[in-house]
């Protein structure tokens, strides 16, 4: 499984739109009193008298058409159907796996969602038998999986699947976590940042919306540099010209540390 594709998400592209990176706002801050021309968008609310639009988050103020949004700088991951995320199995019983997806609820992975229909080869548990047993022997507690979210809403636990392109168990490498709202910047506009990181550090890297980054390089020196770079991107996510600065940073550090 090679990780060249990253999940695309239009909603998050706002963050990548460097033009829109402007004012840092905090909860309760008045974004505008011009409620005739502007509408409250994401991360905002009207006050009780409907005379002001105020921010709900610490984030960046963005005006898009006649909507005022606040792109959060801090926050947690809310699962949405279709997201591909890195999950860790924390518990299992004969009918389902319990997965930590860095959200408020644990995700549920049912065995039927781990077996490709109509194909049996490569499935360890059943050893090539035509009729596969539906059980939870395929994965173990502590395994890292890339999963897709099938369904998620406010009341129910998210349902997961490992059937699909780029999904399944990860072997080797390491997973690090950053603030989920900063993930779009690690990917960059049209994947520019992630491509640059990959090329300069020779590491495989897979980034998911729940704030997790899986990476694997040829040696620990490269991995260390990549981890530092990802953390630097996260802490400078609200600044402009980040891709160029990161490129300079990595080239410089490589020289300094004497790694190719």
């Amino acid at each position: 499984m090679e990780e060249s594709e990253q999940s695309e998400d239009n909603e998050f592209e706002d963050f990548e739109d460097e033009e829109s990176i402007r004012d840092v706002v905090v909860p309760g801050e008045v974004l505008t009193e011009d409620v005739k021309n502007f509408l409250p968008g994401r991360g905002t609310i009207l006050n009780k008298e409907k005379t002001k639009i105020i921010s709900l988050n610490i984030g960046l103020k963005q005006i898009k058409k006649n909507y005022i949004n606040v792109i959060p700088l801090r926050g947690f991951y809310t699962p949405r159907p279709g997201d591909k995320v890195i999950a860790m199995i924390v518990d299992k019983n004969p009918v389902k796996y319990k997965c930590d997806i860095n959200a408020k609820d644990f995700g549920q992975l049912k065995p039927k969602n781990t077996i490709k229909k109509g194909r049996t080869r490569g499935f360890r548990g059943a050893g090539g038998f035509p009729q596969e047993e539906v059980n939870t022997k395929k994965f173990d507690i502590g395994d890292i999986l890339v999963v897709k979210i099938l369904s998620a809403d406010r009341l129910n636990k998210p349902e997961l699947t490992t059937i699909g392109k780029y999904l399944g168990k990860k072997v080797g490498g390491i997973v690090i976590s950053i603030d989920p709202p900063k993930i779009p910047r690690v990917i960059g506009r049209n994947g520019s940042m992630i491509k640059m990181l990959k090329n300069l550090t020779n590491c495989n890297i897979f980034v998911t919306q729940n704030g997790r980054v899986w990476l694997k390089g040829e040696d620990i020196a490269h991995e260390r540099l990549l981890i530092e770079s990802v953390n630097k991107i996260a802490s400078e996510a609200h600044t402009v010209g980040l891709t160029d600065r990161m490129q300079d940073f990595i080239i410089n550090e490589k020289k300094k540390r004497g790694i190719e």
Partner: peptide, 11 residues
């Protein structure tokens, strides 16, 4: 709470 990114109406 604000630092945690919890949506809140104000401080």
């Amino acid at each position: 709470l604000a630092d945690a990114g919890v949506p809140m109406k104000s401080l």
